[in-house]
Design a binder for these strands. Structure first.
Lengths: 243, 243
DNA sequence: CCGATGAAGTCATCTGATGACTTGGGAAGG
DNA sequence: CCTTCCCAAGTCATCAGATGACTTCATCGG
């Protein structure tokens, strides 16, 4: 076992065993070096690894603290890596996104409040009223984030946010078919919002699933040379019957 | 921006921009230090951060290489952190697990081959025939992994594997109600396997969803003091109709 | 042709020193 | 007594230098 691994797993063990709890300041570097039997350099590399994973947070001048270990934060650390996936890899994750976005929409339909509903409609109508790609992107983010929030699972909201952040980078609205895509996207959003307003989880799930499938198809335009393959039909078995 | 951040984001940028591609060896430490304007120590900390996230892989004596950037590997890096979540946080993720396990089972039902089917039944029957917690855990892992494999999405398989690895740590079969839980689990597995054998995605999804919900309930026994709250009905809207 | 050897390249680790930042207590003033 | 300011201790951040360990590959001898 390398020195860095010793430091990494040693610290990880301390947290797993409950010796260090969420929010607590961990012992200073010099103490940990002695206990774990590694030099400061190796210890710091191990600390950085845990920090990259969102488990601990060094604060200059103050100390290093165990994070709150909230699942939404842990999932959020994926945003640093999802951006690096090749597009083909990203599209492989879209099957997962489709299922989860669908679920979140269904949950939102079941739990929607009047306040959230008007917020959602406001975002949607603002989106319909503009063509500025930048603004559309921002509103799209707000629209879906609010739906995910209403869905009630912060971890799921965070997870879906990671996907959208990556997808936004592609700026599909600047494609030649941009305007057509924009109209189609607007229709999808209205279908989702309407289903939620009707408190119809099944319709909401179906609309969200279709929306993601559309996005997936548009992103194929950015693939090097792949004229819309269709290995994964947008309407999968359980989506057909269940969403 | 700190020196470590400079190193981390500098390297990340090189990969995002395509200057470093999957599988490629990155320049030696000394070159990168000069280019990024940081010392070796800081550079190495940045490298370790990317390594923890599964983006690059240092090899002693040979060099540091960009990983294959497969989404299943990236998702797999979550296994290092999911183990550290408090049980309450883990249970929050179970809503996600339930939806995805359900989806994987449905996909498996649609795509099952005779060979995989007999493998799945073999695992199931072996599980039914033993009471050894260790062996049951291993077979449970194999059973679900094979279903996820047949589902056809490696990323989803990896993601579900992360959850199961954590859940196994709890050894529910050693509880006082262990034998009862074991029988219930056996029944769940048979329901899933039968639905897949019948090529019935809807039934498979429903059975898988129920199975995860059961696991969720059993894990509540390990909570400090929470007598089975039920904020999230096992049969959520779209699960009822859609799965 | 093949295996052993050695040198070069690269990462791994340790040590020591200095700088930057945060924190908390104490002194000064109100 | 309370508030404000300041400083000293504690802690992380960074750099520089040196040595060790491991891999790789070309070279040499059989």
């Amino acid at each position: 076992m390398s020195a860095v691994d010793q430091a990494f797993h040693g610290l990880r063990r301390m947290i797993a065993d409950g010796r260090l709890v969420a929010g607590q300041r961990i012992p200073p570097e010099s103490d940990l070096c002695e206990e774990l039997g590694v030099s400061r350099g190796s210890l710091r590399e191990g600390v950085r690894m845990l920090a990259a994973l969102g488990v601990i947070e060094p604060r200059h001048g103050s100390g290093t603290y165990v994070s709150q270990l909230r699942p939404e934060d842990i999932v959020g650390s994926l945003s640093l890596t999802v951006d690096l996936l090749p597009l083909t890899g990203l599209l492989e994750m879209y099957e997962i996104r489709r299922v989860l976005e669908s679920h979140a929409a269904a949950q939102a339909a079941a739990r929607i409040t009047p306040e959230s509903l008007s917020t959602i409609f406001a975002y949607m109508e603002a989106m319909e009223a503009t063509e500025d790609p930048e603004r559309v992107s921002a509103l799209d983010q707000d629209f879906h984030a609010e739906i995910a929030r209403v869905g009630g699972n912060p971890t799921l909201k965070s997870f879906l946010g990671v996907f959208r952040a990556r997808s936004r980078a592609y700026q599909v609205f600047t494609l030649p078919e941009g305007p057509r895509i924009k109209r189609s996207s607007d229709e999808d959003h209205r279908a989702i919002a309407t289903a939620i307003a009707n408190r119809d989880p099944v319709a909401a799930a179906a609309a969200a699933s279709a929306h993601v499938a559309h996005t997936e198809r548009w992103l194929h335009a950015f693939l090097p040379r792949a004229p819309e393959p269709d290995p994964e039909p947008p309407a999968s078995p359980e989506s057909l019957s269940g969403a």
